[in-house]
Amino acid sequence: MTDQRRPVLAAAEQAGDALDLFGRVSARLRRLMPFHSAVWTATDPETGLITAPMLVENLGSGEDCAAYWHSELLEENVLPFRDLARAAVPAAGLRAATGDLPARSSRFRRLLRDQGVHDELRAVFRIGDRPWGLVSLFRVTDAFRARETALLADLSRPLAERLRALARPPASARGTDSPAPGLVLFDESGQAMSANDEARHLLARLPDGPSFPTALGLRLPIWVIGTAFQARAVAAGRDRGGARVRIRTTEGRWLTCHASCLTGQGGSPGPVALVIEPATPGDLAVLVAEAYGLTPRELQITQLTARGMTTAEIATALFISPHTVRDHLKTIFAKAGVSSRGALVARLFTDHYWPALPEPTSVRRTGQPPARARIVQRPRERLPDG
């Protein structure tokens, strides 16, 4: 670890939640590479869309924030986050990327220049292809240097790992008391034109952050607006990603916000319908798997373990060796911080209210011919430790 990274990561380790992490890291990083203002935000690791929390330092209003993300998703820009998330280096400066011609970016022409910004340095905090957070740093005097970009790139994975750990749902997060999904409709210009009572109920439970006033007398958080922008971007062919994001409420519960662009007259893009509702067990399953860093195979083995299947039965069901199953279980135990199968199931399924266990898996006992394969089901309450 470089000497410069050490104090930044030490500050991140002291954080109690993602917002605290952003504040601590920003303060420490500013001593190493001065900047005038910044935007730090968590992202949904599946879609890369912004979610709570977001820390905005020394920038404009919620309207400015909405304009920034509108430009990010719907206009031609240099270094969009969606491209940076897949780039070989997850950090880049605007002036360096444009040959000192930042006006090549719509974001700079329409927003940053009028705010006196001279250069922007942005990064994606990612693990593999999974983004856990984003940052934009702004300077009003000189450009960011190559060594500063390299430092931010070096921080990408360790900060993503810390954000991933902080994203683990608390054991008490069982859901919300909303009786039905909330619905918000946006017109073709992106203005909210109607919302039901359920939407107001759920929106009131979202954490504080940049928000945008509407004619409905309702302030919409930037994460909700960003999801609606993404639906329009997908409809316009600008992105193939999903317009879906999970947001943690002030009670620690999780909501899912997803949007789609309706078809207007002549097949043109019409209004956007946005639904916000309690996260389904499936949403939480994926989130918890991501938060603990489980691979798809590890998640599969964890689910079969929770069914009470033995190592040999799991190996048969997945067409792998018992030795491979045991190696996977050791890795899973280490990631979840447990030492037994029973503790694993309690940690991941009971604590986080994962969905009902998967459908019965067809397995073949050793020595049985294929024609006599049968369904093996174990009682859910059986949690073997061996």
Rank of each mutant, 00 (worst) to 15 (best):
A346L: 08
A27N: 09
L73G: 00
L94R: 04
P53A: 09
L166P: 03
E359Y: 05
R364V: 13
Q300C: 03
F212R: 11
Q303G: 01
L137F: 08
R238C: 00
F229G: 00
T249N: 07
L294E: 07
L318R: 13
G226P: 05
L299T: 15
D154F: 00
T43A: 11
G266D: 10
G16W: 09
A180Q: 14
T51L: 01
Q377Y: 03
R244G: 00
D177Q: 10
A204Q: 14
R24G: 01
L255S: 06
S172V: 13
D239A: 08
L206S: 02
A11E: 15
L299V: 11
F144R: 06
A285C: 04
R240T: 14
D197V: 10
T98C: 02
R104F: 01
S260D: 14
I375F: 05
I247Q: 06
R145C: 01
M33A: 14
H201P: 00
R378T: 11
S362C: 03
S339I: 14
L262R: 13
E381S: 04
I127R: 15
V224H: 03
G237M: 13
M54S: 12
P384S: 05
V272H: 02
A52W: 07
T263N: 01
T51C: 07
L21A: 07
F81G: 01
Q265K: 11
